[in-house]
Nucleic acid binder design. Structure first.
Lengths: 221, 221, 221, 221
DNA sequence: TATGAATGAGTATTCATTCAT
DNA sequence: GATGAATGAATACTCATTCAT
């Protein structure tokens, strides 16, 4: 009661964000430095002293704004998820705009998703990796994913009558999962750090597009 | 000629495996303890002192058998990959045996793969995570995957005439990637450590099966 | 321009010397403890934990000020060399002041050098020993020696006309080397830790003085 | 009574030297390996496991023959001193043979000594270094030096009447010390590992020769 | 509020020495 | 005797966190 006033306490690790100019600026520098270092060096080799150095802040200042190293990272991820959620809206809008029939809609969706993930890979990689040991980051990641899932449901259900699958919601959920997982793994999220097949990114996008479209339009159980 | 007689020296970190009884036993205890701790605690918080304690061996003994902490982990993973490769053979044999037409073959394949990954998830999770920072483990993982890919190609190409896709090899490669990635992510390999959706494992298997089968039999570019 | 503004970067390992009171004090305690331990125990058996204990500082503090154990030792030696260089100036001034003719100048030089080395023996012993394995310390030692050599050249060349040797510079270089080596060995620099003949220090000084004086005034090739 | 039957117990660390063929051979391999490693790597980085490997003997065998690592090293040094003592005899014989007058005798002595030290530098360097921390090795070194001093006394006193110095024994003692120290330092015994002045070895020998000869023949207090 | 010096628990690794086989 | 596996104390170094100024 003292610590968890809301229903999602874990998902709101926002640090102690100052509103004023000077403090605010150094707060932002901390986050920027942390983000950069996370991208450059991954989760191991991520030391607060480096954040302090890079952000031209003192260690003490960091602890003034964040409870712990974990907290700092969580805030970084939280901010990133927020940005991602915005980008996801744009992405879905874009794909809907392009769309003629369901087939082209699904292909556009797959293409957009692929490029979206590729674009954000540098931040998502360490985030995914961290999710393995930090439940807060894990929850944060799920929140972003869930947001996307909802939007994709809405966008594709608009073409419900063209969906051949007799459980459209499940089918949409499936294609998102499949496409997301496949691209994420190819991009090395949280795993290998390198691609299994670098050259065939284009092929992969096409084939996954075909697969998802075919499945959604034709499959039934 | 002096050190690396084979083409894959990095993939053979086998430690110094004793053949006799007593030494052998403690060697195995080390590996068992390391495997357990890796599964329980992940790659961070994996300390050699704990391996020593749990395996009832001295630190010195570990260094007697392994060059370094990394080497120990690599040997653990190497052993696991070896076991997996055997299991993969059995898996492919089983799915081939069951098969009537291509559709049932692909569904069997997806089902087998899903359960195979689920069965091995506890070991694969830390392995995938480690692959992010240890190139040797990464290479080991790719070896296992490539072995599976080859076997799956052979098994499915036996039904070549039933494949509708005009690039059968690419299509087979794609369904393996897609299925592997989707299940791996669901099982939390290298990432969240927990399922996003626990209940719908069964659904997921079915849908991925349908998707792969449909794609392979009907899709063409 | 970024890292090595001077021509002798290796010779300037000064640690991170704080200027303020409290930090400064513990910095000095570290150096004092390190110096003492080096003198008491030599280079082997010189452990940072002991420095920490003796200096009443934490291990972390030491690493806050010095990059490594080697760096700490180098700073100790560097400081010592700096003090020695000052002392050498005084020494040469003193011997010049006393001097009547070249003979008395050389004898004064030998006497001063002998006592100078004896006085500094406790610190020079471990320093010489360390020079065997640490090139930075070796360079530091040479710098100190070279400084002395230059000053001695100047002081004795002032009496050039009294030098019988037809290569005065070589002769002066030689008497410094000979006297330095002889006293250093007698004092156990870098070697035996004890004197071969403790009693005859006085005799040794006299004889070396005679030898050097005779040689410089009379010898010719 | 059990441990120190003689007056020089410390100077007789001969290990447990077997007389028979096979054991003897491996005993010799141990010593040879130890000697090589001492010369190659110095006193630090000298590990018994390496001696075992290089000598193709087991660690256990080494401990069967020697009480400890220190004991092994002492035996190595002891053997070396024995060889040196023989060589010293030859050296003195040679210089006596060459000699015309005292001047040429002293010059021959200095030349011989210089080359003798240079020849044996690889073994003497680690030995001198070790003497700093191991009193047994120190005593061993003194024994070798003392043997040489005695022989040199005899050889030069044969020319007593040509000695100008009014304390011939002291003078001879002095020139040995001076020459020995100077060359030893130049060759980096126990200290820098490298020469201060590489090129002028020849010059140094000449000048020290001149200095010693002049001193011995002309100096008086 | 801000600073950064200080802390010290934690970790990988080495190596002389012992002892069961 | 010979072997080499096993031991574990010792040691350099890292880094999240605290707290006096």
């Amino acid at each position: 009661m003292d610590e968890a006033p809301e229903s999602e306490p874990l998902l709101n690790p926002t640090g102690r964000e100052p509103k004023q100019g000077r403090s605010r600026a150094s707060f932002e520098r901390m986050l920027a430095a942390a983000t950069d270092l996370l991208m450059e060096r991954g989760n191991d080799d991520f030391a607060l002293t480096d954040v302090a150095k890079r952000g031209k802040v003192s260690i003490g200042s960091i602890y003034c704004r964040f409870d712990s190293k974990d907290d700092l990272i969580q805030v970084v991820q939280h901010r990133f998820i927020d940005r991602m959620i915005i980008e996801q809206s744009e992405m879905v809008a874009r794909m809907t705009a392009k769309a003629g029939d369901l087939d082209s809609l699904v292909r556009a969706f797959v293409e957009e998703l692929a490029e979206f993930l590729k674009r954000n890979a540098p931040v998502m990689r360490p985030m995914m990796q961290r999710a393995a040991s930090d439940p807060v980051v894990s929850a944060l990641g799920q929140r972003g994913y869930q947001d996307l899932a909802d939007k994709v449901q809405t966008a594709l259900l608009a073409r419900r009558e063209e969906i051949g699958h007799n459980l459209p919601e499940l089918a949409i959920d499936t294609i998102l999962r499949v496409a997301y997982s496949t691209f994420a793994r190819h991009l090395g999220f949280g795993m290998t750090g390198g691609n299994y097949n670098k050259a065939d990114w284009k092929n992969l996008k096409t084939e996954v597009g075909v697969m998802c479209s075919t499945y959604l339009r034709n499959a039934h159980r």
